[in-house]
Nucleic acid binder design. Structure first.
Lengths: 127, 127
DNA sequence: TTCAATACATCAAACTCTTATGTATTATTT
DNA sequence: AAATAATACATAAGAGTTTGATGTATTGAA
């Protein structure tokens, strides 16, 4: 009789999600965090996501900064610079347009998940 | 007094999901469908997904065929050609490696969704 | 004083999807 | 009978995103 588990470790050790899955949800994550926190800066976003997901979603700066810039260019975010000593900090906030977009995106994700679950739960030859 | 609904129509009319969301789940969808149906051909996969999701997830052939070829190149799928009259039909099946990959992917997606929900459900300033 | 953490940013290469385009057979409509 | 739609494969240029590296600079900890 086995007294230790040798498989399914992946679900016990914190599994890091393949970047493929995170693709497509990055903007949703950023918009939702900003909706909840009024203003955040880039580095803070990466750390917050790391903490909230126990390291399972790791946003890289190379992906995050271009995304923030794109959201800003779309008029969804506004920015304000702050100095902490001599170090620059760039805070992002949702514009009114950004607020409705945030709701829209979270909504869409929720429905997408429902649709995906109906796809992935289907068992063969039930009838 | 309004007697008709003018907003939230998007959730009543079948919303088509942005391709951004579908990115990263295409392989999962294909692997799961093949796990449930033993063998399927490309066109059949596009139609099945269309039906099962009520047109909300639409796989284009330009995305599907390269993906099938990639999965095959990875040793996850095997193929067999059949002729329906003179028309070619290429059936895909899961290899043993593909079967475990399918479980892995569905599992990963499920956990990813849980993680995302904890991210997206968080409300600000609860304490 | 050296290393790690904080904080911004850019960029080439890689990857994936979109949107045609192409070929060919078969079924349906006009 | 001819035209159109559906079936069924496939590729490929361009677009969009992410990876992974690299860069600059400040601040805190060892």
């Amino acid at each position: 009789m086995k007294t230790y588990v040798s498989s399914y470790q992946k679900t016990e050790i914190e599994m890091i999600f393949s970047s493929e899955l995170i693709k497509g949800t990055l903007k949703t994550i950023v918009l939702k965090l900003l909706a909840d926190n009024k203003k955040m800066y880039g580095y803070e976003i990466t750390q917050t996501v790391k903490e909230l997901t126990k390291d399972r979603i790791q946003l890289t700066e190379g992906a995050l900064y271009p995304t923030l810039h794109a959201l800003e260019a779309d008029g969804l975010l506004t920015t304000e610079i702050e100095y902490i000593g001599k170090r620059v900090r760039k805070y992002y906030s949702l514009s009114p347009k950004g607020k409705s977009k945030a709701k829209e995106r979270v909504n869409e994700f929720t429905e997408f998940v429902e649709t995906m679950q109906s796809l992935l739960d289907i068992k063969p030859r039930l009838a």
